[in-house]
Design a protein around this nucleic acid. Structure first.
Length: 569
RNA sequence: UGGGGUGUCGUCAAGUGGUAAGACACGAGCCUUUGGAGCUCGCAUCGCAGGUUCGAAUCCUGCCACCCCAGCCA
């Protein structure tokens, strides 16, 4: 009995953790709402590039559609021509696709609905529920009241329906200058909820729209466009972030007046990450003021930046799964993102040897012209990844950090008189460190034990350290870019000016790195682990076979570095 | 001072009256031809104060703290 229970549980797939949104959907389904349909959407404004916070929303919305056998739409919320560009549309489409969300034939734009929105606005005017207001922006603000005091009615609030109709049409036709009039919903200027104090539905903008050109001179506001767009598309659950909670009564009000399909708006807490900035405005500033190379700089939290950095879509999806969905505002530790990347790449990245800061080693008792081949396992976590051949010669490079003339306790690497293993090859012992006039070590003279071929000896003696290496003659030169967090404060806005918290050492460029020949033709989508160092990918913009450039996506956990840090404290 | 939200481990986050899941981080150890990976173990009484109850993180009351809202941005 007991055993059966355990087995049953073990065989059950570990379903996704529930959350309050799933509970709401479950309840709606039980009550037979929406004919048992689930239909979600991701509604980005094309005014910037997507970031990891958007990934949370995409994974949430697309994940729900998948799990409930529903549908998922991609819809651009393009109601403000002044801020939006088609270049953003393109990058967003690419990113959503790369993340793996599928909208099939349901790629929409709020601008697809401008005509319908206009007609609905006329309907509201005819019902006395909307009016044209001549107050300017400043006056509207004054009339709106404050958080604690009610607003007062605009003197234009009670215009006749006929006049409103006539004026609104002239607004549409471009007969009035920008800012001179707006169309407002007539709700309640005394409401405790400021969104209900006669919100603006249309503003005049003589501006070209990236899709509709200059067909329109009036553009709908977010509140007027969003819910109605959801309704038109048959969305059942309209998921947005917390700051729109106050807008829900308005979302509902419009839909109720129109008596059309009424999606349910649900709000969740947006993602925050420590050491990271998520504000589109600030990210744009970093790009415009050249603190980074672009929206896809590998240090950016943008989807394109993460992609270029070497993050896999799988790792990002897993991250979004693990952070959960709730209503409390929180700050997730970026270490979790790094963890899901390592976890994913550990299983699939091909291992390679690459020496980032080369130190030449001459193996004195190894024949000058001899070239030996060894079979190296491509991935100890995945036998199907096979093996590759690596070559060994008298002169090799090892990592400078792997040698110390006067090693501290617990340093397991090479030192005078010390023996270590060269991964997949031989044991070597250091005889001498050769220095130049400045006292810098220029090369190591070592000897190898022919008996240790393959990495172990007949006498079974043990060595504490195993080093990665590369044959000097065969190695390929490469550039390697090491990234660190862009900000050195957990909260980049600490102190008020996030620019002051930029980490000056967020990018370190290494040239003259020596890598295995097989890395010469690495492609940007291929994930590699440079043994003992971390996960790397060829840079999608700058890497060529003649000049390979690798980005470090994330380092391996480094116990030695931790021991050193502890010692330093 | 109005309206809307939220408070469970260092960080996320389950829990929906029956005696605090899990993950990351952190610490200890085992293992290891990556000081990687893996494995084992450790790590909270639930914002505060009352109350109801045999029993409360879960119900009630009162406080406190934090977040959002006064764009013709989304």
């Amino acid at each position: 009995m007991e055993d059966n229970k355990i087995n049953k549980n073990d065989n059950e797939k570990p379903g996704k953790p529930s959350n309050f949104i799933r509970e709401i959907i479950d309840r709606d389904l039980e009550q037979g709402k929406n004919n048992s349909r689930v239909h979600t959407r991701f509604p980005p404004e094309p005014n910037g590039w997507l970031h990891i916070g958007h990934a949370k929303s995409i994974c949430l919305n697309y994940g729900l559609a998948q799990d409930y056998n529903g549908k998922f739409n991609l819809r651009f919320d393009d109601t403000n021509p002044l801020k939006e560009e088609s270049s953003y549309v393109e990058s967003i489409i690419k990113d959503v696709e790369w993340l793996g969300a599928k909208w099939e034939d349901r790629l929409f734009y709020a601008s697809d609905y401008f005509e319908q929105l206009y007609e609905w606005a006329i309907k509201l005017i005819k019902e006395g529920k909307a009016y044209v207001d001549d107050l300017n922006a400043e006056e509207i603000r004054e009339y709106r009241g404050t958080l604690t005091e009610p607003g007062k009615n605009s003197p234009f609030r009670d215009r006749s329906i006929e006049e409103n109709l006539k004026l609104f049409e002239k607004m549409k036709n471009g007969d009035f200058p920008d800012g001179s009039k707006v169309l407002r919903a007539k709700i309640d200027m005394a409401s405790g909820n400021i969104n209900l104090r006669d919100p603006v539905m249309y503003r005049i903008k003589h501006a070209a729209h990236h899709r509709t050109g200059d067909k329109w001179c009036v553009y709908p506001s977010y509140d007027w466009a969003h819910g109605q767009s959801d309704s038109i598309e048959g969305i059942t659950h309209s998921i947005c972030t917390l700051e729109f909670e106050d807008h829900r009564p308005l979302y509902d009000w419009f839909l109720d007046q129109l008596e059309v399909h009424h999606p349910r708006q649900i709000e969740f807490a947006r993602l925050n990450l420590n050491y990271t900035i998520m504000s589109k405005r600030k990210l744009l500033q970093l790009v415009q003021e050249k603190y980074v190379s672009g929206w896809d700089d590998p240090r950016m939290p943008t989807i394109s930046g993460l992609r270029r950095r070497g993050y896999s879509p799988e790792s990002i999806r897993e991250f979004c799964e693990r952070i959960g969905v709730a209503k409390r505002e929180s700050v997730v530790d970026i270490a979790l993102l790094e963890h899901t990347l390592r976890e994913d790449l550990n299983k699939r990245a091909v291992r390679m040897m690459a020496v980032l800061r080369p130190l030449k080693v001459v193996i004195e008792n190894y024949p000058e012209d001899k070239v030996e081949e060894f079979e190296a396992v491509n991935n100890p976590e995945d036998e199907s990844a096979g093996t590759r051949t690596i070559v060994f010669t008298r002169e090799i490079y090892i990592e400078r950090d792997d040698f110390l003339e006067d090693p501290p306790r617990k340093f397991f690497r090479l030192a005078p008189g010390r023996e270590v293993r060269l991964k997949h090859a031989y044991f070597i012992t250091c005889n001498e460190a050769v220095k130049n006039d400045a006292g810098e070590i220029t090369e190591l003279r070592c000897s190898y034990d022919p008996e240790s071929r393959g990495g172990s000896t007949p006498d079974g003696r043990r060595v504490k350290g195993t080093l990665h290496w590369v044959s000097a003659e065969h190695a390929v030169d490469a550039e390697v870019r090491l990234f660190d967090r862009l900000f050195d404060k957990e909260d980049p806005t600490e102190g008020g000016d996030f620019l002051k918290n930029i980490n000056p050492d967020s990018l370190e460029i290494l040239t003259g790195c020596k890598v295995e020949p097989g890395l010469k033709d690495a492609k940007s989508g291929e994930y590699y682990q440079f043994l003992r160092q971390g996960y790397f990918v060829a840079d999608s913009e700058d890497s060529t076979p003649d000049h390979p450039v690798f980005n470090r996506s994330v380092g391996l956990r480094d116990t030695w570095a931790r021991i050193q840090q502890k010692g330093a404290k």
